Computed example of a mutant assay.
Amino acid sequence: MARAFEDKRSSHQKIAAGLRRQITRGDIAPGTKLPSTPALMNEWNVAGTTVQKALLMLKEEELLEGQPGKGVFVKEHTQQAISPMVYMPPAGTGEPYRWISEAEKRSQRGSSKLLDVTVVTPPFEVSRALGLEAGGQALLRKQILSLDDEPTELTCSYYPLELAEGTAMMERRKIRGGTPTLLSELGYPPREFVDEVSSEIPTEDEVLALELPKDMPVMLTFRVVYSDNERPIEVSLLAKAAHKYRMRYRLSVS
């Protein structure tokens, strides 16, 4: 017999969760006007203040917007699918970073802001993925990727020092085409990548960088990129706002 379990969230959190799922999965389409507060009170059997708290949560998450005198509406582009595969191939000669070129295909404006370039002792799982010895160091390049000026992804990418030293990767500046292009030019083209995706409580760094509302988790991708002979050439931690983006993978089945 299954054990009894109680949802201990407050009523407004439960209402927000129900509405959020309908919005992000398309059951309530962008531009749709939500029912009135009295209608939602009746639907959920709660007080008006509870409904208002729920709606405020979703407004802070930028899923809803209030229009004075008209009501509360679902915002456009409430959740966007990101396809990792399209960003992996190196950019062609003279072409921009793929984050920017792929955004243009969707009529969006992609941009990147480099936050830090430094040699560090990486976190345990990064060190293990790169095959470093205890206390070994790697190059960290940290940046914010944005779509239409909205912070979308906090990226912390680590590279083996033997590949990075003496190259533009060590400099605190953007690289034309991105690091995949530079690594390919150095003889280390990306051949395969492995993603592990999880939902996690954000760190303060992630909350500030992604401008996250209170109590909103991040979708964290731990990615290892391999070149020829299964050599790891990059390990990245990619954090996105879980309520705004989803990952899309298309894999062939043999």
Rank of each mutant, 00 (worst) to 15 (best):
T24K: 15
T24S: 13
K105L: 11
E171R: 14
G131E: 15
E150Q: 13
E204W: 06
Y226F: 12
M1A: 12
Q143A: 15
S227D: 08
A209K: 06
R223T: 06
G18Q: 07
D149V: 11
L238C: 12
A103M: 09
V74C: 06
G110P: 00
E153F: 12
G178N: 03
E230S: 07
I144D: 04
Q52R: 11
D205P: 01
D215E: 11
A47S: 15
H77M: 15
Y245A: 06
C156H: 14
D148Q: 01
P232H: 04
L208G: 08
I15K: 13
M247I: 15
S199Y: 11
S107P: 10
P151Y: 00
E165A: 09
A164R: 00
S10V: 06
G92T: 04
Q22G: 04
F124T: 13
P96T: 01
Y245H: 05
K142H: 12
L182K: 05
G135V: 14
E61M: 05
T78D: 11
A17Q: 08
P160Y: 05
M247E: 15
T179G: 12
S227I: 07
K33R: 12
N45K: 13
Q137S: 08
L237D: 02
E206T: 02
S111F: 02
S127T: 04
L154W: 03
Q80D: 09
M169C: 01
W99E: 09
S227N: 07
M216P: 03
P151R: 00
I15D: 09
A91Q: 05
V72W: 03
K8T: 10
S198G: 08
P190K: 02
E192H: 15
S11M: 13
G31R: 09
E60R: 09
K8M: 10
S184F: 09
I100F: 14
V117D: 01
R109E: 03
T152D: 05
A54V: 00
L212I: 14
Q79V: 08
K8E: 14
K70L: 08
V86N: 13
G178P: 01
